[in-house]
């Protein structure tokens, strides 16, 4: 007797966000990437559709004195540090799907670039490389509001994805994204209730739900990724079973989270039993990304070229039906 495969029937798919606009769509990108759209849990092809591949966005950072791990900087190419436009061109060489432009230089302690300067840097990056672009502020909420508004205004029509909106300050960013046709990253601190509430608050400003991408603020392998997974899973099941306010694609800043852990950056000499740091670092990043994919993350923001190439191979394998 044939075994009957039980399948879940879900009420609705995840919404599809369009990242980047081509010339026909009013932008200058080489392509427009469809993000999300899953009709089932990640890669359960037998049960429902997974129409769009998860994408990898490679980080380009604007800070000149970047205090990243030496091996990581060398793997990217030391010549790109402090030169975001050249770095952006390299993103395409690595084979990443998009650029994750991190405006760390806007932070008063890390370069104090003005909003105008940041807007210009963003335009330079857009001119240097035609991949779709995700932009994030410095993380300093005192300056990010004005910086991101300037960036959003200067890039109207490019369908960027801009972050981060948080419950404490989201209004000006929503307004800027709304008026300029960009998507917005809604970030909540590993808390599904705040995640949902923030999406509601953003939608109350008339932002279409299709233009919100959730950042659940995942952690790295070794630092509570299991908890992050459970939050992503709960949100995704809630969305598939009918919760419209959670039915958005997800983004994760995997590079940032992985490379701040000592398992990624500690010297080989200090922890010889952990193996070569040059291999261990990208492995830590790639494994974290792999866990995020299983939680339903649609956009992986990553740093190390080897980790990026490795996770892209895994995505291709996972997408085979």
């Amino acid at each position: 007797m044939a075994v009957q495969i039980l399948k879940e029937k879900y009420a609705q798919p995840i919404r599809t966000f369009k990242l980047g606009a081509t010339a026909e769509e009013g932008g200058t990108r080489c392509c427009s990437l469809a993000i999300g759209g899953e009709g089932t849990l990640p890669f359960q092809h037998y049960e429902g559709v997974n129409p769009n591949k998860p994408i990898v966005a490679m980080e380009v950072n604007t800070m000149i004195d970047l205090d990243w791990n030496e091996n990581l900087k060398n793997a990217i190419g030391a010549q790109y540090i402090g030169n975001p436009t050249e770095w952006a061109k390299y993103v395409k060489e690595v084979g990443a799907d998009a650029i994750y432009l991190k405006l760390d230089s806007a932070d008063p302690d890390k370069g104090n670039d003005s909003p105008e300067k940041c807007a210009q840097l963003t335009k330079d990056v857009l001119a240097a490389c035609d991949l779709p672009v995700i932009v994030a502020g410095s993380g300093n909420s005192e300056v990010d509001e004005e910086v991101l508004m300037a960036v959003a205004d200067a890039t109207k029509g490019e369908n960027l994805l801009i972050g981060f909106a948080e419950t404490e300050h989201y209004k000006s960013l929503v307004a800027a994204c709304l008026g300029n046709g960009h998507g917005i990253i809604a970030r909540s601190p590993l808390d599904i209730n705040i995640c949902k509430q923030l999406n509601i608050l953003i939608s109350e400003m008339n932002m279409p739900l299709e233009r919100i991408v959730i950042d659940p603020l995942v952690s790295s392998v070794g630092y509570g990724i299991e908890y992050a997974y459970s939050i992503m899973e709960r949100g995704r099941i809630g969305a598939l079973t009918g919760d419209k306010t959670l039915s958005m694609p997800m983004i994760a800043t995997v590079g940032f989270e992985s490379w701040r852990q000592k398992e990624a950056w500690s010297n080989t000499e200090d922890f010889p039993q952990w193996g070569e740091q040059a291999d261990r670092g990208p492995a830590w990043e790639a494994v974290t990304a792999a866990a995020c994919l299983q939680g339903g993350v649609d956009i992986l923001c990553m740093r190390h070229p080897v980790a990026i190439k490795s996770i892209k191979r895994q995505i291709d394998a996972l997408m085979v039906k």
Binding site: I192, N193, I194, K196, Q197, I200, L201, S203, R234, G235, G238, D243, K244, T245, L246
Partner: peptide, 17 residues
């Protein structure tokens, strides 16, 4: 049956949310 958010009553009544 539904995931909590502070605005859950509003969400319940607004079917487009």
């Amino acid at each position: 049956k539904k995931i909590y958010a502070d605005s859950y009553v509003k969400v319940y009544r607004e079917k487009n949310l």
